[in-house]
Amino acid sequence: MSEHDDHDHGHDHDHDHPHNAPLTDVQLRVRALESLLTEKGLVDPAALDALIDTYETKIGPRNGAQVVAKAWTDPAFKQRLLEDATGTLADLGFIGRQGEDMVVLENTEAVHNMVVCTLCSCYPWPVLGLPPIWYKSAPYRSRAVIDPRGVLGDFGVKLPEEVEVRVWDSTAELRYLVLPRRPEGTEGMTEEALAALVTRDAMIGTAVVRVPEAAR
């Protein structure tokens, strides 16, 4: 903004309470840009609605959770997924924008994988949807590579020293999905019930999958 912003209210962006607050400068700015581009015939607001709806209601971490549950219950699928993630995910319909070239990283007793994008916010949209704020923010992007065990601590995860932590910095167009470990005590569960246990954070590698006490 700087030289262009002659308002005197600075960065008073009330992101958490958008409903009752007066319009802030960024809200007005986005609205003004949309009206300008619409006026010029460069955008169709209905296309914006369709884009937004896709990521609010259709593409999200439940996609990835299905993949994980299937890998836990079908060894041949898991093998294909690890060898050719892009093709195997495409067979399930999970392809496209920000998931063009996929790699699946398997967490084991010996190795824990965790994914970051230190330079921006690269993230596997077709399987996880759009990234959460913490993934895009400075604390995670700065610290995931230099202190991954400390970051895991922020998420309540403490790994034994002998576990090797591998952090994957998504600096190119490869997109990474972590295949978390299947928790003990889930032997009799259906694929659907397993998918319900898998969290977004476990597929980024900042969490492990746990079985809720009630389900034990």
Binding site: H15, D16, P18, V26, Q27, V30, R31, E34, L48, I52, Y55, E56, G60, V116, T118, L119, G129, L130, P132, I133, W134, S137, A138, P139, Y140, R141, S142, R143, A144, V145, I146, V151, D154, F155, D169, D201, T206
Partner: peptide, 27 residues
């Protein structure tokens, strides 16, 4: 280019985070 910097504090995840936090973010 943030990798390796100090001082940004802990990573704070938001429970049940919405995909967008305001109408302007959607647009």
């Amino acid at each position: 280019d943030l990798g390796g910097m100090h001082g940004f504090g802990p990573v704070v995840a938001e429970p049940d985070e919405p995909v967008f936090h305001a109408a302007w973010e959607r647009r």
